[in-house]
């Protein structure tokens, strides 16, 4: 399981990195990006899904 952010869709609403700062970071424009390799563990999967469900621009995907 791997999470990614589509940089073309992300508009910097900031929901992901506020909600799951251990999975997502932000760049100097305030756009979100995935920290590290994006591989999800049992400890991070639920929150990654929650961030995905809260992204107003539908920019987050989780590869099963």
């Amino acid at each position: 399981m791997k999470v990614s952010i589509d940089a073309d869709r992300c508009q910097g609403h900031g929901r992901c990195f506020n909600m799951a700062p251990d999975i997502f970071g932000f760049d100097d424009l305030g756009n979100g990006y995935v920290l590290g390799d994006g591989v999800l563990t049992s400890g991070t999967l639920d929150r990654a899904r929650l961030a995905q469900a809260n992204c107003p621009e539908h920019a987050i995907s989780i590869e099963e």
Binding site: G12, N54, P56
Partner: peptide
């Protein structure tokens, strides 16, 4: 509310630039 994909700061390229400050 856990799932809340609201559009208060707009959608698309004009997303409120000050949303972090507003929040």
């Amino acid at each position: 509310r856990e799932i809340n994909r609201h559009a208060a700061f707009g959608l698309g390229i004009h997303r409120c630039a000050g949303s972090n400050l507003a929040r």
